[in-house]
Design a protein around this nucleic acid. Structure first.
Lengths: 152, 152
DNA sequence: TTTTTTGCAAAACCTTTGCAGTTGG
DNA sequence: CCAACTGCAAAGGTTTTGCAAAAAA
């Protein structure tokens, strides 16, 4: 099972479409795997593996952290999950059932904005003009100071 | 001893100015501490703490990893050292004896370009216009695909 | 039934911390 | 001399891996 991250089988899948995609790949929809997706769709914002394993603070059944990590990896290969790194600290995972967001994060207070890729095209253009690189802010976001922190 | 990272006592210090800055703060120029700076100035590109402790592959004496980390932190507080995170993997440290570089890194092959902050002003402007955030790419770089990797 | 997946334990990896002994000034 | 610093060892936080038992299809 290999698939490029960011290349979902289904664009912006609902949770049921995600379940179907798992079966279509010949993978099993185990309780633990379903729970990971349920947590991601319930949180609907980037969350840590730890928090998923804790059932989002016991709103859902708890599960084993190692299995959560394994399932997140599998689901990411299927394009059903993505993860992003906000500065130091653990990675944050989201379901792919939203437009493929890119992020701008505050280095100081961790406040973030999630933007549609199209909104960042002017930034991407500026990066391309300056460096020749094709920037993507889905996995590693733009880091800086939010308006509040900028003014101390 | 506290100082904002990125606020060096001396702008773009030579290694000898760095030595002097340590003494001016009442701190000691121990052998281990000198070695950290010598490694950073010898490498002249971002390197891991591990590699510093290994004497850049035995080009310099080896030293203790924990002490290297402690010294890097101290030196960073003095504004003589900075560190940057290129994707996953260990942090990379540089001396501050160059213009305060900002980085653009390839997510795939790790190739990077170090740019002077002024060169990134158009990018910073685009980020400010899009998000209101004041972007800095010194600690967390812009991540994307380099020209070679973009074309597979 | 058979292959995948789980749960637990252990390890891997990077970084920090505690502490007794050493050293720089 | 004495605070600052070191080296070593141990722990902390995040993620991965090995393996026998359990469960999905």
């Amino acid at each position: 099972v290999t698939n490029n991250p960011g290349t979902p089988l289904v664009a912006a899948p609902t949770i049921d479409e995600a379940f179907a995609a798992i079966r279509e790949r010949g993978l099993r929809l185990s309780a633990a795997r379903r729970l990971v997706l349920e947590a991601l769709y319930a949180a609907d914002r980037p969350v840590t593996a730890e928090r998923i394993a804790a059932g989002l603070g016991d709103r859902l059944p708890r599960s084993d952290l190692a299995s959560v990590y394994r399932n997140l990896e599998t689901l990411e290969q299927l394009g059903l999950v993505r993860h992003v790194h906000f500065g130091h600290g653990p990675g944050l995972y989201t379901h792919a059932g939203v437009a493929q967001h890119e992020y701008v994060v505050c280095e100081r207070c961790n406040a973030f904005v999630a933007l549609d890729p199209a909104e960042l095209d002017s930034i991407r253009d500026a990066v391309r003009a300056t460096s020749g690189y094709e920037a993507r802010f889905t996995h590693f976001p733009i880091v800086g100071l939010c308006p509040a922190c900028r003014d101390d």
